[in-house]
């Protein structure tokens, strides 16, 4: 079953498809350049201690993203 949800709700080890980026233009450029594009598959590797950032793999790139910012990204699990 597939459901639409926020990236911040993903569990470590889970994979998902990027659906939408609800961020300002500047940050959108950065995310695009790092490989966050609609339809791309990403995987959540782990979450840092003390409610810290997420470690994600998208393509051949590993990226850290804060929970707060991950909240702005919609994914399909």
């Amino acid at each position: 079953m597939t459901t639409l949800q926020r990236l911040s709700t993903l569990q470590a080890g889970q994979s998902a498809i990027v659906q939408a980026l609800h961020v300002d233009t500047g940050f959108q450029y950065r995310l695009h350049a790092l490989g966050f594009r609609i339809g791309k598959k990403l995987e959540l590797i782990r979450i840092a201690p003390f409610n810290g950032p997420l470690q994600l793999r998208i393509g051949n790139t590993e990226v850290m993203l804060r929970k707060h910012d991950a909240d702005q990204i919609e994914i399909l699990v």
């Binding site: 840092a48 201690p49 003390f50 409610n51 810290g52 950032p53 470690q55 850290m64 804060r66």
Partner: peptide, 19 residues
Amino acid sequence: LSRAAFLMDALMTRMGLDG
């Protein structure tokens, strides 16, 4: 160094800074 940023980001946020 970027791993250090990952580990420390949560603490740095509380100080108004980031990784």
